[in-house]
Design a protein around this nucleic acid. Structure first.
Length: 606
DNA sequence: GCGGATCAC
DNA sequence: TATGGTGATCCGC
C-alpha cells in the first residue's frame, strides 16, 4: 500500500489508545535474539533503552506500523483458528497424519552432517591483530553493526543494531570498520582445513559451512564427536579462530546444534529417532532456520512455542498458514532435514542485484544520478557473474522506510548499464507520478530470469561481433516533465522491440560473444582456455570464478575493491565521482601460497 | 507474472 | 542526527 502522504506525516500525537508496546519493543530488539551471548542480559532493560533511543524516528514509525499490521493479522489468525475448531477437522487431521507418515518414511539416519560456525567471526579476526580488543566491548561495522564480541553482547549489543543505539547501550563500545580482505583471508585458511574433512563441503556464508563427515569417520575409524573435536582443535591451533559445531543426522539439526554450545563448543544430537524427537520437542520454533520474528509471533498466537507444540495443531496449520508452511512445520516436528551437502557452485543463481542507501533525496535529477550509478554497478555484477536478465526489478525505499518494487520485461535480455538505466527509468517515472513529492532513501536494481552468457567453450572465431546498434539513450533533459519521459520510454521499448526481431536469429551466439568482449569485466572473463579447469569459489561473492591462482586473485581483488567502494561511497552526494577517488588502493594477495594450494581444489568436476 | 513480505547472513 | 546489502522463497492476487 503506497502512502501518498509525502511530507504529510508529521508525527501525530498518537495518544488516544496507549497501545501495547511490548510487541513493538520485542520487534525493535532485532532479529538476532537467538544469537549466543544474550542469556545473562536483561532484555527488558535493553528493549527500554532501544525504544527510547529510537522513539519518534522515521524508522521507529515504520516499525510501529508494521507491528500494528502484524497485530491485526494475528487477530485474524486467532479468529480463524477459533472458527476452524468448531468445525469437523477429521479430514484435515487424517491428511496431516498421512503426510507425517510419508515424511517419516523418508527419514535418513545414515549420515553424519555437521554445521561449523565461527564465533563472532569478524570481531575474532580483529582481536587477532589487536589482542587488547579482547578486553573491551567491541563491534565491527559503521552505521549498522555486522558483529560484536562477547563482551559487547553482555550489554545487549548485537549484530544488525544501529551503532548509535549500540552506543546508548554501551557508551564505551569500540567500533571498527569492516576489513573484508582480512576476514576473507582468514576464512580461506579455515576452509582449507575443513576441506580435509570433506572436500565437497558447502559454504553457507563467509563464516559458516556444512560438511558431511561420514566418509571421514569411516576411513579413519573415528566417531563424529572425535572428528569434530579434532577439526575444531586444528582450526583453533592453526588459524587461532574458535569455531562451534553441531553434529546431527541432517543439516537442519546440525545448524541448530552449532548454536547450542557457542562459543567454542560442539553439540551432538544422536542419529536416533527418539533422540531427535526429544530434542525437537522442547526446542523453541524460533531456533529453527526459517522461523523469524513474524512467524514466531504468529505461531505463538495459536499456542505453538516449541516444535513439540506443532503436533497437536497439525490439523489447523494448512488452513492457517498454507501448505508450504504446514510441510515445513511437519519437518520441524519430526526433526527432518536435508542430508545432501554439496558445494555452492552447484546451485544455480536466480538473480543478480545491487542496491544502495543514501540520505533522503527528493530532487528528481539527483535521483536519476543515483539510478545511473546503481545501473553502472549492476552492469559490473552482471559482467562478473556472466548473466543477462530478461526481467529487471526496480526497488525503492521511501523516506518513510516503505519499500516498493516494480518490474518490467525488456524485449531482450539486458546487462549493460545504459539498458538497465533505460528500462528502469520509466518505472521510476511512474512511481514519481503516483507518489507526488516522492523522497527516497534507497534505490536498487535486480535482474531475474537470467540468461547465462558463459562461453560455451567452442566458437572462438567467426564472430559476427556486430554489437547491437545503440538504443536511444533516453537522456532526461534537466527539469523535464514526466510526459516527455514516458514518451521517450515508450520509444525505447519500440526501438528495442524492432531490434529484437533483427537480433533474433543470432541472439544467443551474440550473447556469449559479448560477454567475452566486455572490456571492463573482471579478468576471469578473459580466461578462454581449452580444457575445463577446476573452479575456485570467491570468498566474497561465493561463486566459482576462475581457473588459476592469478585470475582468482584478480577476481577477489575486484570483489574486494567493489565492496570497499560501495562502503566508502555510501551517503556521499555524488557517488559516481567520489566513490572511485576515495577507494583505497587495492592490495594484492600473494599468488599461490604453494603449501596451502592444491588440496583446496574441489573434486566435483567430472 | 507481479508486488509485498519474510528470512538468513 | 542516525537503522545495511544480497539473494531466495512464498503468498495472494
Amino acid at each position: 500500500m503506497v502512502s501518498p502522504s509525502g511530507p504529510s506525516d508529521e508525527k501525530k500525537p498518537q495518544p488516544a489508545q496507549e497501545e501495547n508496546s511490548d510487541t513493538l519493543k520485542y520487534q525493535l530488539l532485532g532479529p538476532s535474539l537467538t544469537k549466543a551471548g544474550q542469556d545473562a542480559v536483561d532484555q527488558q532493560k535493553v528493549s527500554e533503552i532501544i525504544y527510547e533511543a529510537s522513539k519518534g524516528s522515521k524508522f521507529f514509525n515504520h516499525e510501529q506500523e508494521r507491528d500494528r499490521n502484524l497485530t491485526v493479522k494475528i487477530e485474524r489468525i486467532r479468529k480463524e483458528k477459533a472458527r476452524l475448531e468448531r468445525l469437523d477437522l477429521s479430514h484435515e487431521l487424517r491428511r496431516a497424519d498421512e503426510y507425517l507418515a510419508e515424511l517419516e518414511s523418508t527419514r535418513d539416519l545414515s549420515q553424519y552432517v555437521i554445521h561449523v560456525d565461527c564465533d563472532a567471526f569478524f570481531a575474532a579476526v580483529e582481536e587477532l591483530d589487536r589482542p587488547e580488543l579482547k578486553l573491551v566491548p567491541m563491534a565491527v561495522g559503521k552505521g549498522v553493526l555486522t558483529t560484536c564480541n562477547y563482551l559487547a553482547r553482555k550489554f545487549g549489543v548485537r549484530s544488525g543494531m544501529a551503532s548509535f543505539v549500540a552506543k546508548k547501550l554501551c557508551p564505551q563500545l569500540v567500533l571498527l570498520p569492516q576489513n573484508y580482505e582480512k576476514y576473507t583471508a582468514k576464512a580461506k585458511e579455515i576452509r582449507a582445513i575443513m576441506a580435509q574433512y570433506d572436500p565437497l563441503f558447502e559454504s553457507a556464508s563467509i563464516d559458516e559451512a556444512y560438511l558431511n563427515i561420514t566418509p571421514y569417520c569411516v576411513d579413519n575409524n573415528m566417531n563424529p564427536e572425535e572428528v569434530v573435536q579434532q577439526m575444531r582443535a586444528e582450526i583453533l591451533e592453526t588459524t587461532k579462530v574458535s569455531v562451534s559445531a553441531g553434529i546431527a543426522a541432517n543439516a537442519k539439526i546440525a545448524k541448530i546444534s552449532s548454536n547450542q554450545n557457542k562459543p567454542n563448543g560442539q553439540f551432538r544430537v544422536a542419529n536416533e529417532r527418539s533422540a531427535i524427537m526429544d530434542f525437537m520437542r522442547s526446542l523453541p520454533v524460533r531456533k529453527v532456520n526459517g522461523v523469524g520474528r513474524v512467524f514466531e509471533r504468529e505461531l505463538s498466537s495459536i499456542g505453538i512455542e516449541t516444535c513439540g507444540d506443532i503436533y497437536p495443531h497439525r490439523a489447523l496449520l494448512t488452513k492457517l498458514f498454507g501448505e508450504k508452511a504446514f510441510q515445513f512445520l511437519a519437518q520441524c516436528y519430526l526433526g527432518l532435514g536435508r542430508t545432501k551437502i554439496e558445494p555452492v557452485e552447484t546451485h544455480e543463481r536466480k538473480s543478480v542485484g545491487t542496491e544502495s542507501t543514501f540520505h533522503e533525496i527528493g530532487d528528481k535529477e539527483v535521483i536519476r544520478a543515483k539510478l545511473n550509478w546503481v545501473a553502472q554497478e549492476l552492469e559490473k555484477d552482471m559482467a562478473r557473474t556472466q548473466f543477462k536478465g530478461r526481467t529487471l526489478v526496480l526497488k525503492v525505499k521511501l523516506h518513510t522506510f516503505e519499500v516498493l518494487t516494480r518490474q518490467t520485461a525488456p524485449p531482450r535480455a539486458i546487462s549493460q548499464a545504459k539498458d538497465l538505466y533505460a528500462f528502469a527509468l520509466p518505472m521510476l517515472v511512474k512511481l514519481e507520478k503516483d507518489i507526488p513529492g516522492m523522497k527516497l532513501r534507497l534505490l536498487g536494481l535486480r535482474c531475474t530470469n537470467l540468461v547465462s552468457t558463459k562461453k560455451p567453450g567452442i566458437n572462438f572465431f567467426g564472430v559476427v561481433a556486430a554489437p547491437p546498434p545503440s538504443r536511444p539513450a533516453l537522456i532526461e533533459n534537466s527539469d523535464g516533465n514526466t510526459m516527455e519521459h514516458e514518451i521517450s520510454a515508450e520509444e525505447a521499448f519500440e526501438t528495442a522491440a524492432r531490434q529484437e526481431i533483427q537480433d533474433e536469429m543470432n541472439d544467443l551466439e551474440q550473447l556469449s560473444q559479448e560477454a567475452a568482449n566486455i572490456p571492463d569485466s573482471p579478468p576471469a572473463a578473459k580466461s578462454i582456455n581449452s580444457s575445463p579447469p577446476p573452479q575456485w569459489d570467491c570468498p566474497i561473492c561465493g561463486r566459482a570464478q576462475a581457473a588459476d591462482d592469478r585470475l582468482f586473485n584478480d577476481h577477489v581483488d575486484f570483489c574486494l575493491s567493489r565492496q570497499t567502494i560501495l562502503q566508502a561511497v555510501q551517503d556521499t552526494s555524488d557517488p559516481s565521482e567520489q566513490g572511485f577517488s576515495s577507494a583505497p588502493s587495492r592490495k594484492r594477495k600473494p599468488i599461490s601460497q604453494s603449501s596451502s594450494d592444491p588440496r583446496q581444489k574441489r573434486l566435483f568436476f567430472q
